[in-house]
């Protein structure tokens, strides 16, 4: 010890003393992320909002139109028919996800949380479709449902239900539902995982306490677990809502193309925006109207998120666990 002590003491006076850290490092840590995010995400969004207030002239210059584009989109029948149709289809898409995907995710998560044998394997495998590109998913299902290949028809016939078969993706009445269900098939893994994680985070003691209080399996789920995971269900709902406006485009684009056939029955905001922006067949692209459609999507999402934040999230008490 004495050796070490004297060595230390000898060295100490000559030691260069550093000053306490200033604030430069905070800037270094934050700046890169902030810059990229601002330039490529926030700025384009703001710029889109700005562009939606202009109209293009033939010579390529832009003039201020105020809310003119919005008026056209909402009231000019050339636009409004397509717009309301797309918005309505989006809402149906959301509705189907809410009544099929999320309850299914909840059911699977609840079963998994009982820790059955091979639970890990089920969980892993059920998540597989979520990983796949929508392009792949789209084509896989298109092939399987196709009357040409006849896999779906063959399987239904095998169980005596062949008469039920129809080329669902091609029929105006069923196309949107079929696409929605494909999307449910692909994404059910996400609510399942989120809810499963929430269920796992409920402490065992609490469940033991419920058991001591005389509740059994089903009632414990209903009376204890479900109230505790409500905030997660709220998050799942809002994620589903936002997802409607993003991932749904890819699926419809790859299965049905950009026109939302048959007869616009699967046309949603995403495809409408793409068509408006880039043009399609007879229609020429219009960045100003494209920006307007995008901005409308922004407002629709904003309304949903606001309803969630003000109306839902506040009421869902988050319990400390």
């Amino acid at each position: 010890m004495t050796d070490a002590t004297t060595q230390m003491a000898d060295r100490r006076p000559t030691r260069r003393r550093r000053r306490r850290a200033g604030t430069a490092h905070i800037v270094v840590f934050l700046a890169p992320a902030l810059l990229i995010y601002t330039i490529f995400s926030i700025y384009p969004l703001v710029e889109s909002l700005r562009l939606s207030l202009f109209d293009g002239l033939d010579d390529g210059s832009a003039v201020w139109t105020g809310l003119g584009n919005y008026a056209r989109l909402l009231f000019d029948s050339n636009w409004s028919v397509r717009f309301w149709n797309a918005l309505w289809n989006n809402l149906i898409l959301f509705f189907i996800h809410m009544v099929v995907q999320n309850p299914l995710g909840l059911l699977l998560a609840a079963l998994l949380s009982l820790a059955p044998r091979f639970g890990g394997a089920y969980r892993t495998l059920i998540f597989v479709p979520t990983l796949l590109s929508v392009v792949i998913v789209g084509f896989v299902w298109e092939l399987i449902l196709s009357p040409l290949w006849g896999v779906a028809e063959g399987m239904l016939s095998a169980v005596g239900l062949g008469f039920l078969y129809a080329p669902w993706l091609g029929l105006e009445d069923s196309a949107l539902t079929a696409v929605s269900l494909i999307s449910v098939w692909q994404y059910v893994g996400i609510p399942m995982m989120l809810i499963y994680a929430a269920l796992l985070s409920i402490p065992d003691e609490l469940l033991d306490a419920a058991r001591v209080d005389g509740l059994s399996g089903w009632w414990i789920f209903w009376k204890v677990k479900l109230p505790l995971i409500l905030p997660t269900l709220g998050i799942v709902a809002i994620l589903t809502y936002i997802g409607n406006f993003t991932s749904a485009f890819d699926l419809i684009y790859s299965i049905q193309g950009v026109l939302g056939p048959p007869d616009y029955s699967t046309d949603i905001m995403g495809t409408l925006m793409f068509r408006t922006f880039f043009g399609q067949q007879t229609q020429i692209g219009d960045i100003y109207m494209g920006a307007t459609v995008a901005s409308m999507m922004f407002f629709v999402i904003l309304v949903g998120v606001t309803i969630y934040l003000v109306g839902v999230q506040r009421r869902l008490t988050r319990y400390e666990m």
């Binding site: 100490r12 030691r15 003393r17 550093r18 000053r19 306490r20 850290a21």
Partner: peptide, 9 residues
């Protein structure tokens, strides 16, 4: 006051 923790001994 202005010296880094590691240099305060």
């Amino acid at each position: 006051n202005d010296i880094a923790p590691s240099d305060r001994g």
